[in-house]
């Protein structure tokens, strides 16, 4: 299970958003994409998900060009976890997760007992079974993020794409969501997330892409590529990078705070 992006470029009318992006995301890996706001992370995701078609270059899903794969087939190997949002109508957590199984039933039918069991298992695994009869819009942001993760799990894909999964979450929920992502990666999932937090990548990511101006500035293992210079280049902010616990963990601290 892999995603291979080669020489991907995209522009909205005349404004170039992505410019020659190359990377490979593989199984057992959590890949984090960092970059300032508006750098094109969401556009990149939309290309990978097959939602935007007018790009140059190639996106390969398990070796096949994603432009040649139907929406239905893409949804069988790729699940998307959007930022937790408020839908127009309030659904119960259970129904919300059940929607992820839609691909397994034909257009004129509804999910059955097999799908209901999948949902129960996914809720159990993410520790949110107690929420199943609550309304999706009435639970906290962190819980909503976990619900959307459960919805992706019941879709039974091996690749998960998460758009800033820890944005707007409190500290504890950030850790809980990231821990789940990490353990899924260890089980063989391919996970791609976008994030704004360099410390998070030191703790949880296997690989990092640093993006600026629609290009990849640097990529590799977080400990190798994340230097004070790179952060300064990305976010125009002076930082010190310190190592803790015999360099098993690194932290990134803004200089103005010291």
């Amino acid at each position: 299970m892999s995603i291979e992006v080669s020489n991907l470029s995209f522009s909205y009318s005349h404004r170039s958003v992505l410019n020659g992006i190359n990377f490979i995301a593989q199984e057992n890996q959590l890949l984090s994409i960092l970059g300032p706001n508006g750098v094109g992370k969401s556009t990149l995701f939309r290309c990978i998900l097959g939602l935007l078609r007018g790009y140059r270059g190639q996106v390969l899903l398990n070796g096949k060009d994603i432009k040649d794969i139907s929406i239905k087939e893409i949804a069988k190997s790729l699940a998307y976890i959007p930022q937790s949002h408020y839908p127009s109508f309030n659904y119960s957590v259970f129904d919300m997760v059940l929607m992820g199984t839609t691909i397994q039933v034909s257009a004129f039918s509804r999910p059955g007992s097999k799908q209901i069991m999948l949902v129960e298992a996914a809720l159990e695994r993410l520790g949110i079974s107690h929420l199943k009869n609550r309304g999706y819009t009435q639970i906290s942001g962190g819980e909503r993020q976990l619900v959307l993760m459960a919805r992706a799990l019941v879709q039974k894909t091996k690749i998960l794409i998460l758009d800033e999964p820890t944005a707007n979450l409190d500290f504890g929920n950030q850790v809980r969501v990231l821990t789940q992502m990490k353990s899924l990666a260890k089980e063989g999932y391919t996970i791609i997330q976008s994030t704004h937090n360099p410390d998070q990548t030191f703790l949880f990511s296997d690989n990092v892409l640093a993006m600026k101006d629609g290009k990849i500035l640097s990529s590799g293992i977080p400990g190798d590529i994340f230097t004070a210079d790179l952060i300064k280049n990305l976010y125009a902010t002076e930082v010190n990078i310190n190592s803790l616990y015999e360099d098993r963990v690194r932290v990134c601290i803004p200089k103005c705070a010291i």
Partner: peptide, 23 residues
């Protein structure tokens, strides 16, 4: 009546519906 389950997915918006395999 037959498509009623699919209508739930549509309330999530087009992008999300498509990533769940619904045209």
């Amino acid at each position: 009546v037959l498509l009623r389950w699919r209508m739930n997915i549509l309330t999530m918006g087009d992008d999300e519906a498509r990533t769940m395999g619904v045209n």
